[in-house]
């Protein structure tokens, strides 16, 4: 059920591993997982398109250090801004996976 509702937050190749781990999960951790607050990659993309120049997309997904770097360099002279339009969805899924691992470990 969790995977059906949340599969868009993760990379497809991570889903079998997550499925296996979820089967072994106890009830209390399952509840924690429901409230973990995963980031939607599509929202990240929209934020990246609108505010990526100021690093807001990086702040949103929790990469604060890189957000500051992006902000202080005019979005990496504009180049990083454009690269992130393509990278941010993958990075968001990666961050979500890291968060999931922290909860289930």
């Amino acid at each position: 059920m969790f995977l059906m509702m949340n599969n868009k937050f993760f990379e497809p190749h991570q889903l079998p591993y997550i499925h296996e781990r979820l089967l072994l999960l106890d009830e209390s951790k399952y509840m924690m997982l429901q409230t973990a607050g995963f980031r939607d990659p599509t929202i990240s993309l929209v934020v990246s398109l609108l505010g990526g120049h100021f690093g807001i997309d990086r702040f949103l997904i929790g990469d604060t250090g890189l957000g500051v770097a992006k902000l202080l360099t005019c979005g990496g002279l504009g180049i990083w801004t454009i690269i992130d339009w393509f990278m941010i969805m993958g990075r968001t899924r990666e961050v979500n996976f890291e968060k999931l691992q922290q909860v289930i470990m």
Binding site: H53, C74, G75, L77, G78, T81
Partner: peptide, 10 residues
Amino acid sequence: NNPTLNVCLF
């Protein structure tokens, strides 16, 4: 003679 290098997208 051409010192302006304006790369800021914004």
